[in-house]
Design a protein around this nucleic acid. Structure first.
Lengths: 235, 235
DNA sequence: TCGGCGCATTTGGTATACCATAGACCACGA
DNA sequence: TCGTGGTCTATGGTATACCAAATGCGCCGA
Protein backbone atom coordinates (compact mmCIF):
# COMPACT_ATOMS: atom_id res chain seq x y z
CA UNK A 1 0.00 0.00 0.00
CA UNK A 2 1.18 3.45 -0.88
CA UNK A 3 0.57 5.87 1.92
CA UNK A 4 -0.67 9.30 1.16
CA UNK A 5 1.62 11.56 3.11
CA UNK A 6 1.63 15.26 3.66
CA UNK A 7 3.86 16.71 0.98
CA UNK A 8 6.42 18.77 2.85
CA UNK A 9 5.31 19.58 6.33
CA UNK A 10 8.24 21.49 7.77
CA UNK A 11 10.05 23.26 5.06
CA UNK A 12 9.24 26.85 5.73
CA UNK A 13 11.64 28.48 8.09
CA UNK A 14 10.60 31.08 10.59
CA UNK A 15 12.29 33.69 8.49
CA UNK A 16 10.10 32.85 5.54
CA UNK A 17 6.91 32.78 7.54
CA UNK A 18 7.65 36.12 9.13
CA UNK A 19 8.57 37.57 5.77
CA UNK A 20 5.27 36.55 4.24
CA UNK A 21 3.33 37.73 7.23
CA UNK A 22 4.90 41.15 7.35
CA UNK A 23 4.73 41.54 3.60
CA UNK A 24 1.02 40.89 3.54
CA UNK A 25 0.49 43.18 6.49
CA UNK A 26 2.39 46.00 4.83
CA UNK A 27 0.64 45.58 1.50
CA UNK A 28 -2.79 45.62 3.02
CA UNK A 29 -2.06 48.35 5.51
CA UNK A 30 -3.04 51.77 4.34
CA UNK A 31 0.30 53.49 4.55
CA UNK A 32 -1.02 56.71 3.15
CA UNK A 33 -3.25 57.48 6.10
CA UNK A 34 -1.89 60.59 7.69
CA UNK A 35 -1.58 59.17 11.15
CA UNK A 36 -0.39 55.75 10.08
CA UNK A 37 2.24 54.04 12.18
CA UNK A 38 5.17 53.77 9.86
CA UNK A 39 7.56 52.76 12.56
CA UNK A 40 8.42 49.18 13.44
CA UNK A 41 10.39 48.12 16.47
CA UNK A 42 12.44 44.97 16.19
CA UNK A 43 12.19 44.00 19.81
CA UNK A 44 8.49 44.68 20.09
CA UNK A 45 7.79 42.78 16.91
CA UNK A 46 9.89 39.79 17.86
CA UNK A 47 8.10 39.69 21.18
CA UNK A 48 4.66 39.84 19.57
CA UNK A 49 5.59 37.09 17.14
CA UNK A 50 7.19 35.02 19.85
CA UNK A 51 10.53 34.71 18.12
CA UNK A 52 13.98 36.15 18.45
CA UNK A 53 15.30 39.13 16.57
CA UNK A 54 17.56 37.08 14.31
CA UNK A 55 15.03 35.60 11.88
CA UNK A 56 12.98 38.75 12.15
CA UNK A 57 15.91 40.84 11.04
CA UNK A 58 16.52 38.61 8.05
CA UNK A 59 12.92 39.04 7.02
CA UNK A 60 13.27 42.80 7.46
CA UNK A 61 16.40 42.75 5.31
CA UNK A 62 14.46 41.13 2.52
CA UNK A 63 11.61 43.57 2.81
CA UNK A 64 14.04 46.44 2.83
CA UNK A 65 15.61 45.27 -0.38
CA UNK A 66 12.21 44.94 -2.02
CA UNK A 67 11.54 48.54 -1.23
CA UNK A 68 8.92 48.12 1.47
CA UNK A 69 11.05 49.26 4.36
CA UNK A 70 13.94 51.45 5.25
CA UNK A 71 16.19 50.45 8.12
CA UNK A 72 18.04 53.38 9.62
CA UNK A 73 20.78 52.41 12.00
CA UNK A 74 19.96 53.35 15.56
CA UNK A 75 16.88 55.20 14.36
CA UNK A 76 14.36 52.55 13.57
CA UNK A 77 12.67 50.55 10.84
CA UNK A 78 10.18 52.48 8.76
CA UNK A 79 7.56 51.45 6.25
CA UNK A 80 8.22 53.44 3.09
CA UNK A 81 5.59 55.46 1.36
CA UNK A 82 5.92 55.77 -2.35
CA UNK A 83 6.11 59.26 -3.68
CA UNK A 84 3.99 60.20 -6.65
CA UNK A 85 7.05 60.10 -8.89
CA UNK A 86 7.92 56.61 -7.75
CA UNK A 87 4.39 55.41 -8.39
CA UNK A 88 4.45 56.93 -11.85
CA UNK A 89 7.76 55.25 -12.59
CA UNK A 90 6.36 51.93 -11.49
CA UNK A 91 3.42 52.32 -13.82
CA UNK A 92 5.79 53.03 -16.70
CA UNK A 93 7.88 49.99 -15.97
CA UNK A 94 4.76 47.94 -15.67
CA UNK A 95 3.56 49.17 -19.04
CA UNK A 96 6.89 48.19 -20.53
CA UNK A 97 6.71 44.67 -19.14
CA UNK A 98 3.09 43.96 -19.85
CA UNK A 99 3.17 45.34 -23.36
CA UNK A 100 6.06 43.02 -24.10
CA UNK A 101 4.08 40.14 -22.66
CA UNK A 102 1.13 41.07 -24.85
CA UNK A 103 3.40 41.15 -27.87
CA UNK A 104 4.58 37.67 -27.10
CA UNK A 105 1.07 36.47 -26.33
CA UNK A 106 -0.03 37.41 -29.80
CA UNK A 107 2.60 35.04 -31.12
CA UNK A 108 2.84 32.29 -28.53
CA UNK A 109 -0.53 31.94 -26.84
CA UNK A 110 -2.59 28.90 -27.70
CA UNK A 111 -6.09 29.36 -29.01
CA UNK A 112 -7.34 27.80 -25.80
CA UNK A 113 -5.58 30.39 -23.67
CA UNK A 114 -6.99 33.21 -25.73
CA UNK A 115 -10.45 31.73 -25.45
CA UNK A 116 -10.07 31.53 -21.69
CA UNK A 117 -9.01 35.15 -21.61
CA UNK A 118 -12.06 36.18 -23.58
CA UNK A 119 -14.33 34.10 -21.37
CA UNK A 120 -12.88 35.74 -18.30
CA UNK A 121 -13.31 39.21 -19.75
CA UNK A 122 -16.88 38.55 -20.80
CA UNK A 123 -17.96 37.35 -17.39
CA UNK A 124 -16.13 40.29 -15.99
CA UNK A 125 -17.93 42.77 -18.17
CA UNK A 126 -21.30 41.17 -17.50
CA UNK A 127 -20.92 41.51 -13.77
CA UNK A 128 -19.31 44.92 -13.85
CA UNK A 129 -22.68 46.64 -14.02
CA UNK A 130 -23.83 45.83 -10.54
CA UNK A 131 -20.81 44.27 -8.88
CA UNK A 132 -18.86 46.12 -6.27
CA UNK A 133 -15.53 47.60 -7.09
CA UNK A 134 -13.52 45.15 -5.07
CA UNK A 135 -14.86 42.29 -7.12
CA UNK A 136 -14.25 44.14 -10.33
CA UNK A 137 -10.75 45.03 -9.23
CA UNK A 138 -9.89 41.40 -8.64
CA UNK A 139 -11.18 40.41 -12.06
CA UNK A 140 -9.25 43.26 -13.57
CA UNK A 141 -6.05 42.13 -11.93
CA UNK A 142 -6.66 38.62 -13.15
CA UNK A 143 -7.00 39.85 -16.71
CA UNK A 144 -3.56 41.41 -16.60
CA UNK A 145 -2.09 38.37 -14.93
CA UNK A 146 -3.43 36.18 -17.69
CA UNK A 147 -1.76 38.28 -20.36
CA UNK A 148 1.50 38.18 -18.46
CA UNK A 149 1.24 34.41 -18.24
CA UNK A 150 0.27 33.87 -21.85
CA UNK A 151 3.43 35.61 -22.99
CA UNK A 152 5.34 32.59 -21.80
CA UNK A 153 8.09 34.58 -20.14
CA UNK A 154 7.87 33.92 -16.45
CA UNK A 155 10.31 36.66 -15.59
CA UNK A 156 8.07 39.30 -17.11
CA UNK A 157 5.24 38.13 -14.93
CA UNK A 158 7.35 38.00 -11.78
CA UNK A 159 8.78 41.45 -12.31
CA UNK A 160 5.38 42.93 -13.07
CA UNK A 161 3.96 41.31 -9.98
CA UNK A 162 6.70 42.68 -7.78
CA UNK A 163 5.78 46.11 -9.04
CA UNK A 164 2.15 45.43 -8.58
CA UNK A 165 2.23 44.74 -4.88
CA UNK A 166 3.50 48.26 -4.35
CA UNK A 167 0.41 49.57 -6.06
CA UNK A 168 -2.25 47.52 -4.40
CA UNK A 169 -3.84 50.56 -2.82
CA UNK A 170 -3.09 52.75 -5.81
CA UNK A 171 -5.10 50.73 -8.31
CA UNK A 172 -8.02 50.42 -5.96
CA UNK A 173 -8.17 54.11 -5.44
CA UNK A 174 -7.86 54.85 -9.14
CA UNK A 175 -10.80 52.60 -9.81
CA UNK A 176 -12.90 54.36 -7.24
CA UNK A 177 -12.31 57.91 -8.23
CA UNK A 178 -12.56 57.50 -11.94
CA UNK A 179 -15.10 55.95 -14.18
CA UNK A 180 -12.34 53.78 -15.41
CA UNK A 181 -14.19 50.52 -15.10
CA UNK A 182 -16.30 51.10 -18.19
CA UNK A 183 -13.34 52.30 -20.21
CA UNK A 184 -11.29 49.37 -19.05
CA UNK A 185 -13.79 46.88 -20.35
CA UNK A 186 -13.60 48.41 -23.81
CA UNK A 187 -9.81 48.50 -23.71
CA UNK A 188 -9.67 44.90 -22.63
CA UNK A 189 -11.88 43.79 -25.48
CA UNK A 190 -9.69 45.54 -28.01
CA UNK A 191 -6.64 43.92 -26.51
CA UNK A 192 -8.22 40.49 -26.76
CA UNK A 193 -9.12 41.10 -30.36
CA UNK A 194 -5.57 42.11 -31.17
CA UNK A 195 -4.24 38.93 -29.63
CA UNK A 196 -6.85 36.87 -31.43
CA UNK A 197 -5.79 38.54 -34.65
CA UNK A 198 -2.22 37.47 -33.83
CA UNK A 199 -1.08 41.02 -34.15
CA UNK A 200 1.89 41.57 -31.82
CA UNK A 201 2.35 45.17 -32.78
CA UNK A 202 -1.24 46.13 -32.07
CA UNK A 203 -1.54 44.10 -28.89
CA UNK A 204 1.63 45.63 -27.55
CA UNK A 205 0.50 49.15 -28.34
CA UNK A 206 -2.97 48.72 -26.87
CA UNK A 207 -1.67 47.32 -23.62
CA UNK A 208 0.87 50.07 -23.31
CA UNK A 209 -1.64 52.77 -24.00
CA UNK A 210 -4.10 51.20 -21.61
CA UNK A 211 -1.59 51.21 -18.80
CA UNK A 212 -0.35 54.65 -19.65
CA UNK A 213 -3.87 55.95 -19.26
CA UNK A 214 -3.63 54.92 -15.65
CA UNK A 215 -0.32 56.77 -15.57
CA UNK A 216 -1.86 59.95 -16.88
CA UNK A 217 -4.81 59.66 -14.58
CA UNK A 218 -2.63 59.28 -11.51
CA UNK A 219 -0.32 62.06 -12.58
CA UNK A 220 -3.02 64.59 -13.17
CA UNK A 221 -5.21 63.77 -10.22
CA UNK A 222 -2.88 62.94 -7.38
CA UNK A 223 -0.56 65.90 -7.10
CA UNK A 224 -2.10 66.90 -3.83
CA UNK A 225 -1.68 63.49 -2.27
CA UNK A 226 1.98 63.56 -3.14
CA UNK A 227 2.48 66.90 -1.47
CA UNK A 228 0.95 65.49 1.68
CA UNK A 229 2.97 62.32 1.53
CA UNK A 230 6.25 64.12 1.10
CA UNK A 231 5.45 66.42 3.95
CA UNK A 232 4.72 63.47 6.18
CA UNK A 233 7.92 61.77 5.16
CA UNK A 234 10.02 64.66 6.38
CA UNK A 235 9.33 63.74 10.00
CA UNK B 1 38.62 79.46 11.69
CA UNK B 2 36.38 76.95 10.05
CA UNK B 3 37.84 73.50 10.08
CA UNK B 4 37.53 71.35 7.04
CA UNK B 5 36.23 68.03 8.26
CA UNK B 6 35.50 64.76 6.57
CA UNK B 7 31.79 64.56 5.85
CA UNK B 8 30.59 61.17 7.01
CA UNK B 9 33.36 58.69 7.51
CA UNK B 10 31.60 55.69 9.05
CA UNK B 11 28.21 55.06 7.59
CA UNK B 12 28.55 51.71 5.92
CA UNK B 13 27.72 48.78 8.09
CA UNK B 14 29.57 45.51 7.92
CA UNK B 15 26.57 43.92 6.31
CA UNK B 16 26.69 46.40 3.45
CA UNK B 17 30.40 46.02 2.91
CA UNK B 18 30.17 42.26 2.85
CA UNK B 19 27.21 42.42 0.50
CA UNK B 20 29.09 44.55 -1.99
CA UNK B 21 32.20 42.45 -1.72
CA UNK B 22 30.45 39.15 -2.31
CA UNK B 23 28.28 40.58 -5.05
CA UNK B 24 31.30 41.78 -6.99
CA UNK B 25 33.08 38.50 -6.44
CA UNK B 26 30.11 36.50 -7.70
CA UNK B 27 29.58 38.69 -10.74
CA UNK B 28 33.18 38.50 -11.78
CA UNK B 29 33.62 34.86 -10.98
CA UNK B 30 33.14 32.56 -13.89
CA UNK B 31 30.33 30.43 -12.56
CA UNK B 32 30.00 28.48 -15.77
CA UNK B 33 33.37 26.82 -15.49
CA UNK B 34 32.73 23.14 -15.07
CA UNK B 35 34.76 22.72 -11.95
CA UNK B 36 33.78 26.01 -10.38
CA UNK B 37 33.26 26.11 -6.65
CA UNK B 38 29.61 26.93 -6.30
CA UNK B 39 29.48 26.16 -2.64
CA UNK B 40 29.93 28.74 0.10
CA UNK B 41 30.33 27.93 3.74
CA UNK B 42 29.06 30.47 6.21
CA UNK B 43 31.56 29.69 8.92
CA UNK B 44 34.55 29.56 6.63
CA UNK B 45 33.55 32.82 4.98
CA UNK B 46 32.97 34.64 8.23
CA UNK B 47 36.34 33.46 9.42
CA UNK B 48 38.08 34.64 6.27
CA UNK B 49 36.39 38.02 6.49
CA UNK B 50 37.06 38.29 10.18
CA UNK B 51 33.45 38.82 11.16
CA UNK B 52 30.68 36.85 12.74
CA UNK B 53 28.03 34.93 10.89
CA UNK B 54 25.25 37.38 11.68
CA UNK B 55 26.08 40.23 9.28
CA UNK B 56 27.33 37.71 6.78
CA UNK B 57 24.00 35.93 6.80
CA UNK B 58 22.12 39.16 6.24
CA UNK B 59 24.30 39.85 3.23
CA UNK B 60 23.64 36.33 1.97
CA UNK B 61 19.91 36.85 2.44
CA UNK B 62 20.07 39.88 0.19
CA UNK B 63 22.08 38.07 -2.43
CA UNK B 64 19.68 35.18 -2.31
CA UNK B 65 16.74 37.43 -2.94
CA UNK B 66 18.51 39.02 -5.88
CA UNK B 67 18.89 35.61 -7.42
CA UNK B 68 22.62 35.16 -7.01
CA UNK B 69 22.47 32.47 -4.37
CA UNK B 70 20.35 29.68 -3.11
CA UNK B 71 20.42 28.82 0.56
CA UNK B 72 19.36 25.28 1.28
CA UNK B 73 18.75 24.57 4.91
CA UNK B 74 21.36 22.27 6.37
CA UNK B 75 22.79 21.68 2.92
CA UNK B 76 24.75 24.78 2.12
CA UNK B 77 24.82 28.06 0.27
CA UNK B 78 25.22 27.78 -3.48
CA UNK B 79 25.97 30.24 -6.22
CA UNK B 80 23.25 29.87 -8.81
CA UNK B 81 23.93 29.32 -12.45
CA UNK B 82 21.40 30.68 -14.84
CA UNK B 83 19.86 28.22 -17.19
CA UNK B 84 19.61 29.12 -20.84
CA UNK B 85 15.89 29.74 -20.44
CA UNK B 86 16.46 32.11 -17.58
CA UNK B 87 19.05 34.03 -19.55
CA UNK B 88 16.69 34.28 -22.51
CA UNK B 89 13.93 35.55 -20.25
CA UNK B 90 16.24 38.17 -18.83
CA UNK B 91 17.10 39.38 -22.29
CA UNK B 92 13.41 39.69 -23.12
CA UNK B 93 12.70 41.67 -19.98
CA UNK B 94 15.69 43.83 -20.71
CA UNK B 95 14.41 44.49 -24.21
CA UNK B 96 11.06 45.50 -22.76
CA UNK B 97 12.61 47.97 -20.33
CA UNK B 98 15.15 49.51 -22.64
CA UNK B 99 12.78 49.90 -25.53
CA UNK B 100 10.44 51.78 -23.25
CA UNK B 101 13.33 53.96 -22.15
CA UNK B 102 14.19 54.65 -25.76
CA UNK B 103 10.61 55.59 -26.45
CA UNK B 104 10.72 58.07 -23.64
CA UNK B 105 14.11 59.35 -24.65
CA UNK B 106 12.77 60.30 -28.04
CA UNK B 107 10.31 62.54 -26.25
CA UNK B 108 12.10 63.70 -23.14
CA UNK B 109 15.83 63.79 -23.85
CA UNK B 110 17.44 67.18 -24.27
CA UNK B 111 19.35 67.96 -27.42
CA UNK B 112 22.49 68.05 -25.32
CA UNK B 113 21.94 64.53 -24.05
CA UNK B 114 21.36 63.22 -27.54
CA UNK B 115 24.50 64.97 -28.76
CA UNK B 116 26.46 63.35 -25.93
CA UNK B 117 25.07 59.98 -26.92
CA UNK B 118 26.15 60.50 -30.52
CA UNK B 119 29.57 61.66 -29.45
CA UNK B 120 29.99 58.58 -27.32
CA UNK B 121 28.90 56.27 -30.11
CA UNK B 122 31.21 57.93 -32.65
CA UNK B 123 34.28 57.56 -30.47
CA UNK B 124 33.18 54.06 -29.80
CA UNK B 125 32.88 53.19 -33.45
CA UNK B 126 36.21 54.82 -34.30
CA UNK B 127 38.07 52.74 -31.76
CA UNK B 128 36.19 49.55 -32.44
CA UNK B 129 38.45 48.69 -35.35
CA UNK B 130 41.55 47.96 -33.37
CA UNK B 131 40.44 48.07 -29.78
CA UNK B 132 40.15 44.95 -27.71
CA UNK B 133 36.80 43.48 -26.95
CA UNK B 134 36.83 44.39 -23.29
CA UNK B 135 37.14 48.05 -24.12
CA UNK B 136 34.42 47.80 -26.71
CA UNK B 137 32.18 45.94 -24.32
CA UNK B 138 32.46 48.70 -21.76
CA UNK B 139 31.62 51.36 -24.33
CA UNK B 140 28.71 49.24 -25.48
CA UNK B 141 27.36 48.96 -21.97
CA UNK B 142 27.70 52.67 -21.53
CA UNK B 143 25.64 53.29 -24.65
CA UNK B 144 22.75 51.33 -23.26
CA UNK B 145 23.09 52.97 -19.87
CA UNK B 146 22.85 56.38 -21.50
CA UNK B 147 19.61 55.49 -23.22
CA UNK B 148 18.17 54.17 -20.00
CA UNK B 149 19.14 57.40 -18.27
CA UNK B 150 17.83 59.68 -20.98
CA UNK B 151 14.39 58.19 -20.65
CA UNK B 152 14.09 59.96 -17.36
CA UNK B 153 12.59 57.00 -15.55
CA UNK B 154 15.07 55.92 -12.92
CA UNK B 155 13.22 52.72 -12.16
CA UNK B 156 13.63 51.49 -15.73
CA UNK B 157 17.35 51.97 -15.42
CA UNK B 158 17.58 50.30 -12.03
CA UNK B 159 15.58 47.29 -13.13
CA UNK B 160 17.56 46.92 -16.32
CA UNK B 161 20.78 47.14 -14.38
CA UNK B 162 19.71 44.50 -11.92
CA UNK B 163 19.12 42.22 -14.89
CA UNK B 164 22.37 43.20 -16.42
CA UNK B 165 24.62 42.09 -13.62
CA UNK B 166 23.36 38.57 -14.13
CA UNK B 167 24.56 38.69 -17.70
CA UNK B 168 27.98 40.15 -17.26
CA UNK B 169 29.65 37.02 -18.54
CA UNK B 170 26.93 36.36 -21.08
CA UNK B 171 27.37 39.60 -22.99
CA UNK B 172 31.11 39.24 -23.02
CA UNK B 173 30.90 35.81 -24.49
CA UNK B 174 28.33 36.83 -27.07
CA UNK B 175 30.63 39.58 -28.22
CA UNK B 176 33.51 37.20 -28.59
CA UNK B 177 31.87 34.46 -30.54
CA UNK B 178 29.91 36.57 -32.93
CA UNK B 179 30.84 39.39 -35.21
CA UNK B 180 28.30 41.38 -33.34
CA UNK B 181 30.49 44.40 -32.76
CA UNK B 182 30.22 45.67 -36.32
CA UNK B 183 26.48 45.06 -36.45
CA UNK B 184 26.05 46.76 -33.12
CA UNK B 185 27.66 49.94 -34.33
CA UNK B 186 25.21 50.18 -37.20
CA UNK B 187 22.27 49.43 -34.92
CA UNK B 188 23.39 52.05 -32.46
CA UNK B 189 23.62 54.69 -35.15
CA UNK B 190 20.11 53.97 -36.32
CA UNK B 191 18.86 54.20 -32.77
CA UNK B 192 20.52 57.56 -32.30
CA UNK B 193 18.98 58.84 -35.50
CA UNK B 194 15.55 57.74 -34.38
CA UNK B 195 15.94 59.59 -31.11
CA UNK B 196 17.27 62.65 -32.90
CA UNK B 197 14.24 62.49 -35.16
CA UNK B 198 12.09 62.46 -32.01
CA UNK B 199 10.42 59.32 -33.18
CA UNK B 200 9.37 57.28 -30.14
CA UNK B 201 7.85 54.50 -32.14
CA UNK B 202 10.93 53.93 -34.27
CA UNK B 203 13.41 54.30 -31.41
CA UNK B 204 11.45 51.82 -29.35
CA UNK B 205 11.29 49.31 -32.15
CA UNK B 206 14.96 49.57 -33.06
CA UNK B 207 16.11 49.08 -29.49
CA UNK B 208 13.83 46.12 -29.05
CA UNK B 209 14.95 44.50 -32.24
CA UNK B 210 18.58 45.16 -31.39
CA UNK B 211 18.27 43.46 -28.05
CA UNK B 212 16.19 40.64 -29.46
CA UNK B 213 18.99 39.92 -31.90
CA UNK B 214 21.12 39.10 -28.89
CA UNK B 215 18.26 36.91 -27.70
CA UNK B 216 18.15 34.99 -30.96
CA UNK B 217 21.90 34.65 -31.06
CA UNK B 218 22.07 33.23 -27.57
CA UNK B 219 19.14 30.91 -28.17
CA UNK B 220 20.50 29.42 -31.34
CA UNK B 221 24.11 29.11 -30.29
CA UNK B 222 24.09 28.15 -26.67
CA UNK B 223 21.92 25.10 -26.46
CA UNK B 224 24.85 22.91 -25.67
CA UNK B 225 26.08 25.09 -22.84
CA UNK B 226 22.68 24.91 -21.26
CA UNK B 227 22.68 21.15 -21.38
CA UNK B 228 25.98 21.14 -19.57
CA UNK B 229 24.85 23.69 -17.02
CA UNK B 230 21.70 21.80 -16.17
CA UNK B 231 23.63 18.62 -15.78
CA UNK B 232 25.99 20.30 -13.39
CA UNK B 233 23.13 21.76 -11.40
CA UNK B 234 21.68 18.38 -10.67
CA UNK B 235 24.49 17.59 -8.27
C1' DT C 1 30.89 -9.98 2.40
C1' DC C 2 26.96 -7.16 2.64
C1' DG C 3 23.37 -4.43 4.54
C1' DG C 4 21.35 -1.62 7.97
C1' DC C 5 21.27 0.89 12.13
C1' DG C 6 23.10 4.67 14.69
C1' DC C 7 26.24 7.95 16.14
C1' DA C 8 29.26 11.86 14.89
C1' DT C 9 29.86 15.75 12.11
C1' DT C 10 28.54 19.29 9.21
C1' DT C 11 25.72 23.20 8.41
C1' DG C 12 22.07 26.32 8.22
C1' DG C 13 18.43 28.16 11.75
C1' DT C 14 17.48 30.41 16.06
C1' DA C 15 18.14 32.49 20.55
C1' DT C 16 20.54 35.51 23.52
C1' DA C 17 23.85 38.75 25.13
C1' DC C 18 26.54 42.62 24.40
C1' DC C 19 28.09 46.85 21.73
C1' DA C 20 27.85 51.57 19.91
C1' DT C 21 25.56 55.52 18.69
C1' DA C 22 21.62 58.94 18.13
C1' DG C 23 18.45 61.49 20.67
C1' DA C 24 16.06 62.81 24.74
C1' DC C 25 16.40 64.54 29.05
C1' DC C 26 18.32 66.77 33.00
C1' DA C 27 21.27 69.38 35.93
C1' DC C 28 24.16 73.05 36.51
C1' DG C 29 26.15 77.45 35.69
C1' DA C 30 26.48 81.94 33.37
C1' DT D 1 16.24 82.27 31.38
C1' DC D 2 19.07 80.06 28.35
C1' DG D 3 22.38 76.93 26.76
C1' DT D 4 25.95 73.79 27.45
C1' DG D 5 27.52 69.55 28.76
C1' DG D 6 26.84 65.07 30.44
C1' DT D 7 24.20 61.01 31.09
C1' DC D 8 20.60 57.74 30.30
C1' DT D 9 17.83 55.18 27.24
C1' DA D 10 16.25 53.34 23.04
C1' DT D 11 17.55 50.88 19.00
C1' DG D 12 19.89 48.80 15.32
C1' DG D 13 24.52 46.19 14.67
C1' DT D 14 27.43 42.39 15.93
C1' DA D 15 29.18 38.37 18.31
C1' DT D 16 28.50 33.95 20.32
C1' DA D 17 26.27 29.82 21.79
C1' DC D 18 23.13 26.38 21.05
C1' DC D 19 19.60 23.69 18.20
C1' DA D 20 18.01 20.45 14.70
C1' DA D 21 18.17 18.13 10.61
C1' DA D 22 20.78 15.96 6.86
C1' DT D 23 24.69 13.41 5.65
C1' DG D 24 28.49 10.19 5.90
C1' DC D 25 30.96 6.74 8.02
C1' DG D 26 31.73 2.85 10.71
C1' DC D 27 30.40 -0.76 13.76
C1' DC D 28 27.91 -4.89 14.10
C1' DG D 29 25.24 -8.73 12.92
C1' DA D 30 23.51 -12.00 9.52
Amino acid sequence: MVMKLSPIPTNQTLKDQIYGMLRTAIIEMNIYDEGADLRLDERTLSEQLGISRTPLREALTRLEQEGFLEVRARKGVFVLRKTLDEILDMIIAWAALESMAARMSAVNATDGEIAALRRHAMGNSASSAGADLGEYSDANIRFHQMILEMGGCKLLKDMAESLFVHMYAVRRRALEENDRAANSVVDHMEIIEAIEARSPELASRLVREHTMRLHDHVRTVWSRMDARAEGALKN
